[in-house]
């Protein structure tokens, strides 16, 4: 049995408050995610990647079809399926340590143990020294590392990551990507990672799923063995990169009339 199964999922939203029209964002998607996969969902913006992640997390429900987690229908969020959000999602009134400890709130553990787990998680993301600081003193990269530490503390079987580092600068993003890869290698969990960057996907994934532009459908999938070198200058990676880029649909903005520039 697959860890996660998406069965014929369609998701549609009203296009306006008049509710006289609905737009289909995900169009009859069926996917399976196995244990210990690192799956990257890529595609043009507006293709429903984030929507699919929200359905997997249980923040929203499908318009049709169903999402199964370990064979059970997903109806609400659960600490079994951790999420790192694109936006900053820390609680500003809690210290960094308390933010991480909050992730252990629903677990029946003695306070001392929660403290130890939270501190260990912060150490893993190199933030042990910032444990007592407030999030507003942290840089964007540090905030997202705290969000990762929350998941490390929670230790869910499934990690859902929605363009977690896309608002960070290139250097920081690469560093955090490598950190995530290490965590995945050590923890042996399943990660579903949304990105719009082919390079990021090639660096991380054992499987890349390419979505079409709206309404989102799966165009193609590629499997990359975890053992394969991710050096972007190897022939294999260059070929794969070209293959994916060529298959990638033009971005949604392409069908908009080009801006006229008058002198």
């Amino acid at each position: 049995m697959a860890l996660v199964e998406v069965r014929g999922v369609t998701k549609a939203y009203y296009t306006s408050r008049r509710k006289d029209q609905a737009r289909i964002v995900l169009d009859d998607i069926s996917l399976k995610f196995e244990d210990n996969e690192f799956v990257c969902l890529i595609g043009p913006s507006g293709c429903g990647k984030t929507t699919l992640l929200n359905l997997l997390a249980g923040f929203e429900r499908p318009t049709a079809g169903e999402v199964l987690y370990k064979g059970k229908k997903v109806t609400s969020p659960s600490p079994e399926r951790g999420v790192v959000f694109q936006e900053y999602s820390l609680f500003p009134w809690m210290s960094v340590l308390d933010n991480v400890r909050f992730a252990l709130g629903s677990k029946d553990l003695p306070e001392k143990e929660k403290d130890a787990i939270a501190r260990k998680a912060l150490t893993m993301v190199n933030l042990a020294d910032s444990a007592d600081q407030r999030p507003n003193l942290l840089s964007g990269g540090m905030k997202q590392r705290v969000a990762v530490a929350r998941l490390l503390a929670m230790d869910p079987d499934l990690w859902l990551m929605d363009e977690p580092f896309s608002s960070l600068d290139e250097q920081t993003r690469k560093k955090l990507d490598s950190d995530i890869l290490n965590i995945w290698r050590v923890k042996r969990r399943t990660i579903i990672f949304v990105t719009h960057s082919v390079d990021e996907a090639l660096h991380l994934a054992t499987r890349i799923i390419l979505f079409s532009q709206s309404p989102g459908q799966v165009i193609r999938e590629w499997s990359i063995p975890a053992t394969m070198s991710r050096d972007p200058t190897t022939m294999e990676m260059i070929t794969l990169r070209k293959e994916i880029t060529d298959a990638m649909p033009a971005c949604a903005c392409a069908d908009v009339r080009p801006i006229e520039i008058r002198m």
Partner: peptide, 14 residues
């Protein structure tokens, strides 16, 4: 913001 509520729910807050 919805993300705040979602984050709390995802971490198992009742």
């Amino acid at each position: 913001p919805p993300v705040v509520v979602r984050a709390a729910r995802m971490m198992g807050a009742d």
